[in-house]
């Protein structure tokens, strides 16, 4: 075989796969087609994913500190895993207002990010629906933001989390002298007299990003795979 034939065969065998699974899907998915909220209802309403918070710079902090090493952000459909069956992963199974809000991850869920941190391992839990979980369970009735700051500072401070292996992100916090009144976000952990623990800007961005992880909003009928009974909240 000559060098020329070798290069041609190599380019052909690699090029076909390269086009079919990398180039074409990537460019096809670069701009997703708008999806109607309700097909055939005559309103032409288009699904606009809702997400608020410091998503872009929060995601940078999330990436730089390697959160994706232990946490995934993917609720797989039931053919690919049991994520949907956990009561608080894909949504909240017993949401007080909306019934069962669990759903799988869709292509609009990473709105505002350049790279979806699907994750590579689940040494920790899935974070797709973290913010909703904090609201309804971890910090029920309290301040979600403050709970997350505390959790990042010391993931093992609650007795029920003493076995957590999540690293402490103390380095995202300052210990500063109290001047005048204590800061709003000062953490309730013991520290020297006259000092307080406050989050750095990175910690604020990260927490804002984490609080945007509420991937249980209603989705268009075309990709709502929930069984019909679960979709409608039960009337009181």
């Amino acid at each position: 075989m000559s060098f020329r034939t070798f290069i041609l065969s190599l380019s052909a065998s690699f090029g076909v796969a390269w086009l079919a699974i990398v180039i074409v899907p990537y460019f096809k998915m670069r701009s997703l087609e708008p999806v109607a909220v309700e097909e055939g209802d005559g309103t032409n309403a288009v699904y606009i994913p809702k997400r608020a918070g410091r998503i872009a710079d929060g995601a940078e902090v999330y990436a730089a500190n390697g959160c994706y090493m232990c946490h995934s952000q993917l609720i797989r459909p039931t053919y690919a895993g049991n994520d949907m069956f956990r009561p608080d992963w894909g949504g909240i199974a017993g949401d007080e207002d909306r019934g069962d809000t669990r759903r799988e991850t869709n292509a609009f869920d990473f709105e505002g990010e350049d790279f979806a941190h699907i994750g590579i391992s689940r040494l920790g839990s899935d974070l797709s629906n973290l913010a909703r979980r904090i609201e309804t369970d971890y910090a029920k009735g309290g301040n979600s933001e403050q709970w997350l700051f505390g959790h990042l500072y010391n993931p093992r401070w609650e007795a029920k989390r003493r076995d957590s292996t999540c690293p402490s992100f103390r380095f995202l916090f300052n210990v500063t002298e109290i001047k005048g009144n204590p800061s709003d976000n000062a953490l309730p952990f013991p520290v020297e007299e006259g000092m307080e623990i406050t989050p750095k800007p990175e910690a604020r961005a990260l927490v804002s990003y984490l609080l945007s992880l509420k991937k249980d909003q209603p989705v268009p009928t075309s990709f709502n795979f929930a069984p019909p009974t679960a979709a409608a909240p039960t009337a009181p």
């Binding site: 390269w18 460019f27 998915m29 790279f115 979806a116």
Partner: peptide, 26 residues
């Protein structure tokens, strides 16, 4: 070929974030 593809697509031509994760896995 692989290195240029992945780096150019992910660093210079941001597309759908999920497909970007797919390119990274590839």
């Amino acid at each position: 070929w692989v290195f240029i593809t992945a780096n150019v697509l992910l660093h210079m031509m941001p597309g759908n974030p999920v497909m970007a994760a797919g390119i990274n896995a590839w």
